[in-house]
């Protein structure tokens, strides 16, 4: 049975399973890095809003590309555009109007989805929104992998370059500001990197569930590691394990891949809570 999965991975006739597998591995690096910051900075609800707003970009780009034959307008580009816009709005609101933050987050969350659904409904031909909400490995193409590689490189470089600044604003934003650190710029940069990361996995995991894959590995790693870089390394490993084992199980059992991956992550989190409580 497991051998069936490995045979499928190598089978040139069904490239999508290989693409999904590679996409999972490629995404695990930025997911581990950004997921760690999102979890320890406790901004997963911000990441949730960014993830849901992605549907607006997907809907708009599907509509425009079908209606006006803009073939270059890939849904991933639309997703990226709306995620970046949402990150900027949320970032500016949380810096300049902190008291409205939760209202704005709720608004972006829901209006983003509504906008996306409207455009998808008006797009000629039939597009099942379920594909984007809950993920569909069938829609992953070779182009997606190239986009993934570029985004990977961007996130990893920025993540390495600004590790200490992110650490400082997470621990004590005010002190960092007194030291002359451009804390607002770094905060918005972190949100933008979160936006890019969330977009990476929306095709496989789907908009609704992607936030779990961002935070659960880091939360698990945080039980056992007490250094930020170590939590990142462990999260990268866990994300790769969850996505590839989820893909394998979903292939063997013929279940939706995204849900399987998230359920495995959730189960692993539950087990590690128990281990932490009982043994440690």
């Amino acid at each position: 049975m497991i051998s069936d999965f490995f045979a499928a991975l190598l089978n040139p006739a069904i490239p999508f399973i290989r693409y999904a597998f590679l996409a999972g591995i490629l995404s695990s690096i930025p997911f581990g890095i950004i997921g760690t910051w999102v979890t320890i900075k406790r901004i997963s609800y911000l990441a949730g809003a960014i993830a849901h707003s992605v549907l607006a970009g997907i809907g708009i780009s599907l509509y425009l590309s079908t209606k006006y034959n803009l073939e270059w307008l890939h849904p991933l580009l639309g997703a990226l555009g709306s995620a970046v816009a949402a990150a900027l709005i949320i970032g500016l609101v949380s810096i300049y109007a902190k008291d409205r933050e939760d209202t704005i987050i709720g608004a972006i969350w829901a209006t983003g989805m509504s906008l996306g659904l409207l455009f998808i409904a008006k797009t000629p031909g039939y597009i099942n929104p379920m594909t984007y909400l809950f993920g569909n490995i069938l829609i992953i193409a070779k182009t997606d992998l190239f986009i993934l590689i570029i985004l990977d490189i961007v996130i990893v470089i920025l993540g390495f370059l600004f590790y200490y600044q992110f650490q400082a604003i997470t621990f004590d934003e005010e002190f960092a500001r007194i030291r002359g650190i451009k804390t607002n710029i770094f905060y918005i940069l972190l949100l933008l990197m979160t936006a890019i990361t969330v977009v990476l996995m929306t095709t496989i995991i789907g908009i609704v569930m992607v936030i779990a894959l961002l935070t659960l590995p880091a939360a698990i790693a945080g039980f056992f590691a007490k250094k930020i870089w170590l939590i990142m390394v462990i999260s990268v490993g866990l994300t790769a394990i969850f996505t590839s084992s989820g893909l394998m199980i979903s292939y063997i059992t013929d279940l939706p891949a995204g849900s399987t991956i998230i359920l495995i992550s959730g189960l692993a989190y539950l087990v590690s809570v128990l281990i932490k409580k009982i043994i440690l």
Partner: peptide, 23 residues
């Protein structure tokens, strides 16, 4: 401070030396 933040004593003290751009 968030007591669960995973930083060591040295990490915190070094924050006194942080700059915008440095490797």
């Amino acid at each position: 401070f968030d007591p669960n933040l995973p930083v060591s004593v040295k990490d915190v003290v070094l924050m006194g030396r942080i700059r915008n751009f440095f490797v």
